[in-house]
Design a protein around this nucleic acid. Structure first.
Length: 432
DNA sequence: TCTGGGGTCCTAGGACCC
DNA sequence: TCTGGGGTCCTAGGACCC
């Protein structure tokens, strides 16, 4: 019988920070968003202390004055590296593997009985903890939704030893009767409210509703969830090799009024998008830019807009993606607003090797040159650190009150950033 | 003063066609 | 006073995930 395992890192970002800080074991740890804005990850102890997800950092000390909590700025470079190691171990332990997010992966397991499944999961979890230092929980069942449900039990009940298997009807019924419906994979805020109104509190309650009622009220996605809970495997394992859209966006520290600074942010977002495109071997033919004022400041005039540009020839060079993005920005920028956020989304993504260059295209030669420049700069950045070479318009300038450029500065705030222990030679851990 | 970022999929409704 | 119907395609917005 075909079974699915979901392998999920426990409190991923906090656990990554703890890998190199064993002194933080058992202590509350939180990780902040970019610019140290708000809490985006909490250790078990931080959750138990009542720190909510999304809490603005400035409220942390106010609301939890006596709590000794370790605070980190997000260090995605580190999290990317640690989880890459976790994923490679998981991949080596199964035949079919699908990475679902930065900290989760699905595996397909065939021809294993309940005991073998349980042993497989416990062994894998132990191995990852020992080799990488990351605690991982594993849920196993005949559908992905039920596996996620098993994972919930594996995470919260230590008796399961990090692995819970739902492999019989009796176990399925018992589990779903204990499982809060709002925790079901695929049930979000809106559906939860409707379910409350219907007096449905467990996953089992939901299954008592006839299929057509679920379909009528919750449409296709809801019906799929209902079927999966019944044990019908119907959420496909996306075997997509590349992404369909790539987005890079950021809130700014403070606000931005002038076009030039906004342009610098957008240029950096666009450059990041082109880098991600090249990394997955893709090109895009559409570039979209959006800008936004601070929605929390209702005392200030609000403005949000976006626009996109479709390119005749698909591209992935820094210069071309940045050029298109800046052109979009020009058409939506309005003076007189305090901007808080901007971003770039590229779509129309195709395999880079599949693009045809039209020999009548006068741009063909230019594209080729761009490719050569990009290959050269990527090479330099790979061997010398990621921001060694970049476009002039990506440089953040420090300006005086009259707008005159007086130097350069950092793009974002990250006051509590840990070291990239496993990636940068200068930041390796020293053992004395 | 300070409030995240990156994805996918589905649906409804408009535009357009015959 | 009358003013179809059926189909496709595209897009914006919503809902969900982590």
């Amino acid at each position: 019988m075909k079974m699915y395992a979901i392998c999920d890192c426990d409190n991923c970002y906090c656990s990554c920070e703890r890998v190199f800080r064993p002194d933080l074991a058992g202590k509350p740890v939180v990780v902040l968003s970019n610019n140290d804005g708000c809490v985006i990850a909490r250790s078990r102890e931080a959750k138990a202390a009542g720190i909510p997800m999304g809490l603005p950092y400035y409220q942390l000390a106010e609301r939890f004055p006596s709590l000794d909590v370790a605070v980190f700025s997000s260090n995605y470079e580190l999290y990317g590296d640690i989880t890459r190691r976790v994923m490679s171990i998981i991949r080596s332990e199964c035949t079919e593997f699908y990475r679902y997010s930065i900290d989760e992966a699905f595996c397909v397991l065939e021809d294993m009985d309940g005991e073998a499944l349980k042993a497989w999961g416990e062994r894998l979890s132990r191995k990852i903890l020992k080799w990488v230092g990351m605690p991982v929980s594993i849920g196993i069942a005949s559908t992905k939704t039920l596996a996620k449900c098993a994972d919930y039990f594996a995470k919260y009940y230590p008796g399961y030893n990090h692995c819970c298997v739902i492999d019989t009807e009796a176990k399925r019924e018992k589990a779903l009767k204990m499982f809060p419906v709002k925790e079901v994979w695929g049930i979000g805020r809106r559906m939860r409210r409707q379910l409350e109104d219907m007096n449905i509190s467990t996953a089992w309650d939901l299954l008592q509703k006839p299929q057509f009622v679920v379909r009528r009220q919750f449409h296709l996605p809801g019906e799929r969830t209902w079927l999966e809970l019944k044990g019908v495997d119907c959420v496909p394992l996306d075997e997509m090799h590349g992404k369909k859209s790539i987005c890079t966006s950021r809130s700014f520290p403070g606000t931005v009024k002038d076009f030039d600074t906004l342009k610098t942010h957008v240029a950096n977002d666009a450059a990041k998008c082109s880098e991600k495109l090249r990394k997955q071997g893709s090109v895009c033919n559409n570039v979209m830019v959006f800008i936004d004022t601070n929605r929390f400041r209702d005392d200030l005039p609000q403005y949000a807009n976006s626009t996109d540009l479709t390119l005749l020839t698909p591209v992935n060079s820094t210069q071309e993606v940045v050029g298109a993005a800046v052109q979009c920005l020009r058409s939506i920028y309005r003076e007189g607003y305090q901007y808080k956020r901007a971003g770039v989304i590229v779509t129309g993504i195709q395999d880079a090797s599949a693009i045809q260059t039209d020999f009548m295209d006068f741009d063909a030669l230019r594209h080729e040159k761009m490719q050569q420049i990009t290959t050269a700069t990527d090479g330099i950045n790979l061997s010398n650190g990621s921001e060694t070479v970049f476009l002039g318009c990506q440089q953040y300038r420090q300006r005086d009150e009259r707008g005159k450029s007086i130097g350069f500065r950092d793009a974002i705030k990250h006051q509590f950033r840990s070291k990239s222990y496993s990636l940068r030679r200068k930041e390796f851990l020293e053992v004395r």
